[in-house]
Design a protein around this nucleic acid. Structure first.
Length: 295
DNA sequence: TGCAGTGTTGCTTC
DNA sequence: CGAAGCAACACTGC
């Protein structure tokens, strides 16, 4: 699922490919995906708007458009953006160029399609598509005030220079709860989900259920370092693709073989050989090594 | 075959 | 107020 490294990968790919281009038209077979405004108004307002900036905040992708509105996309569990050429055949979009867009089954759940103009004549037929198996993704067109409000509840970006160890330590001291839950709380730190919280805690040798009030300074330092190391590494290899996430080209990211615990229940820990365990925490799975990560 | 599991966010409930 | 449960979906695996 798209967490910070996957969203960052998507944004970097989009910056290279669609910056400066203009939305020509929109198609959807699941109009509920557009949460704000309603689909008809959304379509009318986005037509003719040029993409001036593409950026990320937490797990949100934001396109700043000419005229002052912003397009916000949250991919939730199974959403991912793709760029390619498709044609509608018998109500189904068919990718026109051989490769992962045509062949990878994860890239066929196309519920929202944007035609993009690149200012050339005639315009290209290239489209930006949102593939989303479970249809949980959120798409909104917001003015500056609405965007600001929407992003205001998010905690700091874990990879920003200003997010120092001292700030991280202070944040943890002001909260309570289990470390895994705290790392995944978007209001505390933005962008970390189930995969990277598990991987961070394995790297830091901290049990996911540890109460943050009982962590000493050395342990907090290990978590801080591990979080940055793992997130940077995952961005470097263009994210994970264990389930649905793909780059805008349709290709998989390279993080899957680097995973140490996530969805590795029953396998041996690469550090000590102990069998990886999975336990439930607040309705989610926590994967960890019971030897390296003592309770 | 049917049903639990998958995991993000926001809403409801207690 | 906060924690917990569930719904929004659809596909996989047992």
């Amino acid at each position: 699922m798209p967490e910070l490294p996957e969203v960052e990968t998507t944004v970097l790919d989009l910056q290279k490919k669609v910056l400066g281009r203009t939305f020509v038209d929109v198609w959807s077979d699941f109009k509920k995906m557009i949460k704000k405004p309603n689909f008809e108004k959304f379509k009318k307002e986005i037509k003719g708007k040029k993409i001036q900036k593409i950026w990320r905040r937490g797990k949100n992708i934001i396109f700043n458009l000419s005229g002052g509105l912003s397009l916000l996309i949250h991919q939730k569990l199974t959403g991912h953006l793709l760029l390619g050429i498709w044609e509608l055949e018998k109500g189904k979009w068919q990718a026109k160029i051989p490769g992962p867009l045509a062949e990878d089954p994860m890239n066929r759940f196309l519920h929202l399609m944007f035609w993009l103009d690149d200012g050339r004549h005639p315009p290209t037929t290239q489209m930006l598509a949102l593939s989303d198996l479970r249809k949980f993704a959120k798409v909104e067109l917001l003015d500056q005030e609405e965007l600001k409000k929407e992003l205001s509840s998010l905690g700091p970006e874990p990879l920003e220079k200003s997010f120092t160890f001292e700030k991280f330590k202070k944040t943890l001291e002001s909260k309570k709860g289990k470390i895994k839950q705290v790392l995944m709380d978007q209001e505390i730190i933005a962008g970390i989900g189930n995969i990277y919280s598990d991987e961070t805690l394995w790297e830091a040798k901290i049990h996911p259920f540890r109460e943050i009030s009982k962590l000493n300074e050395g342990e907090i330092k290990r978590i801080y370092g591990a979080m940055q190391k793992i997130l940077k590494k995952a961005i470097e290899v263009k994210g994970e693709s264990i389930s649905d996430f793909r780059r805008i080209s349709g290709e998989k990211g390279g993080f899957d073989p680097l995973r140490k615990v996530y969805r590795r229940e029953g396998q041996k820990c690469s550090r000590c050989g102990t069998i990886i365990k999975r336990i439930k925490l607040a309705g989610r799975s926590a994967h960890f090594c019971p030897h390296c990560q003592k309770a």
